[in-house]
């Protein structure tokens, strides 16, 4: 796909879809930890794969990442990168513990569960809107350099396309800003499909 394959209006529509998904994800997580969770309006960009690490920033920082493959009517990747302190705080909220400063097996499953909730809610919302079926795979977790986790997804995607649609947003828990990135990347075929549906819905 090239830059011309998507116009500003369609990007706006995609942003709207992402926003519905993000709102749903925040509500789901909020219910789970019983705290107010806000999520920023997602930023949707269609950019060169090589410039994604700069967009995300902090690629050398150690992060905790959950990865889900997206299957069903659309194919893609979902990577959520939590700053370490954010992940530990989420574990505390979920397990009712305090002062978590490393991840044991229980902690890892708690973070995966957070990922599950966010990804599931997000995908459900966009699936409803697009009238498609989307299924996340089981979660995988890694605790490493943010850039290294992002690297593999981008490299795999660059086999099929030079540009990539990146949806990113930040979580806010009880007005305390927790740095995290929620990144969704659809493969080129799925992108085309999504845009086609959006065009139809928008009557263009």
């Amino acid at each position: 796909m090239s830059k011309e394959d998507i116009c500003d209006m369609e990007l706006d529509a995609l942003k709207e879809v992402a926003n519905i998904g993000a709102g749903n994800a925040a509500t789901a997580l909020s219910n789970m930890v019983n705290k107010k969770i806000d999520i920023e309006v997602p930023d949707v960009k269609y950019i060169k794969i090589e410039s994604v690490p700069d967009l995300i920033g902090g690629i050398e920082e150690i992060a905790i990442g959950t990865y889900f493959g997206i299957e069903g009517d659309l194919k893609g990747n979902n990577l959520i990168l939590f700053r370490e302190s954010t992940a530990y705080r989420l574990v505390d909220m979920l397990m009712g513990s305090t002062g978590t400063n490393k991840l044991d097996e229980m902690g890892e499953s708690a973070v995966k569960e957070v990922g599950n909730i966010l990804t599931g809610a997000y995908l459900n919302a966009i699936a409803d809107f697009l009238e498609l079926k989307l299924i996340p795979t089981i979660p995988y977790l890694n605790h490493d350099m943010a850039g290294a986790m992002l690297n593999q997804i981008l490299a795999e995607q660059s086999q099929y396309s030079d540009l990539v649609l990146v949806t990113g947003t930040n979580l806010k828990v009880e007005s305390e800003k927790f740095k995290s990135h929620f990144i969704i990347i659809f493969d080129p075929g799925s992108m085309k499909k999504t845009i086609k549906i959006i065009r139809k819905k928008m009557g263009i």
Partner: peptide, 23 residues
């Protein structure tokens, strides 16, 4: 040196790739 780039230089410089995953 970012993804899909290369750099050529000489001493005393250092060339770096940050956060290599599958790359």
């Amino acid at each position: 040196v970012g993804m899909g780039e290369f750099a050529v230089s000489h001493n005393p410089h250092t060339l770096s790739c940050i956060g290599l995953g599958s790359c």
